[in-house]
Simulated assay, not measured.
Amino acid sequence: MDQALSYVKKMVVEEDNVSLTKSVTDLEMEEVVFHLGANKAQGSDSFSALFFQSSWKEGSKEVCGMVHEFFEGRSGLKELNATNIVLIPKIVKLEGVHHFRPIGLCNVAYKLIAKILTNRLMELMENIISCNQRVFMVGRMIQDNIILTHEAFHYLKNKKTGGK
């Protein structure tokens, strides 16, 4: 594996690692809490983001403490990873399991930590994702590649023989 990885250009430098793993500020957590979907389905903790938003003044100390414990490696992942799987019907007349769509209902603590990590990663995406890759970047869509490929084939199909 080390030999194979030696041919891969290192995209995340030590400075990037430091920014990803730096301590989370209380302000950073508050911003994330208030950007979570307030009325999304409750997870295994039986709370919605609206609960945390409406009681932020009273409960922020405990929430921030829990997030700090996670980033400092002092809390277990088992509780955070607890997720309820719910089957949502795709159609009215249900005849089999394939007519359901499973969704995971994560607890708010998990969503909070995931959003903090996502926000930090977004700052590095331009350095990590190639300019030719069309997904995972704001303003880029995979459909762009389909259109470019279609245009290339259209050009080649209509190209006159000979010449340039």
Rank of each mutant, 00 (worst) to 15 (best):
residue 35 H to W: 09
residue 104 G to W: 10
residue 50 L to F: 15
residue 38 A to I: 05
residue 40 K to P: 08
residue 137 M to R: 06
residue 125 M to E: 01
residue 132 N to V: 12
residue 22 K to A: 07
residue 147 I to Y: 10
residue 102 P to E: 07
residue 84 N to S: 00
residue 14 E to R: 15
residue 15 E to T: 05
residue 51 F to E: 01
residue 157 K to M: 13
residue 122 M to L: 14
residue 154 H to Y: 14
residue 63 V to I: 15
residue 37 G to D: 14
residue 47 F to M: 15
residue 141 M to Y: 09
residue 135 V to K: 05
residue 36 L to E: 06
residue 55 S to K: 11
residue 68 H to R: 14
residue 54 S to P: 03
residue 57 K to R: 13
residue 49 A to I: 06
residue 6 S to G: 09
residue 11 M to S: 04
residue 83 T to C: 05
residue 57 K to A: 11
residue 4 A to S: 11
residue 8 V to Q: 08
residue 124 L to R: 01
residue 62 E to Q: 08
residue 24 V to Y: 04
residue 77 L to S: 10
residue 7 Y to F: 11
residue 140 R to H: 12
residue 94 L to T: 10
residue 116 I to V: 15
residue 44 S to H: 10
residue 51 F to C: 04
residue 30 E to V: 06
residue 48 S to C: 13
residue 13 V to D: 02
residue 79 E to V: 00
residue 62 E to K: 05
residue 48 S to H: 10
residue 22 K to I: 01
residue 134 R to V: 14
residue 56 W to Q: 04
residue 31 E to C: 09
residue 87 L to S: 05
residue 72 E to T: 06
residue 107 N to H: 08
residue 69 E to K: 11
residue 86 V to P: 01
residue 135 V to Y: 10
residue 71 F to H: 12
residue 107 N to A: 00
residue 114 A to N: 09
residue 94 L to N: 07
residue 37 G to R: 12
residue 133 Q to W: 14
residue 146 I to W: 09
residue 126 E to Y: 03
residue 9 K to T: 07
residue 91 I to G: 04
residue 80 L to E: 00
residue 157 K to L: 14
residue 133 Q to S: 03
residue 14 E to I: 06
residue 78 K to W: 06
residue 56 W to K: 05
residue 118 T to H: 06
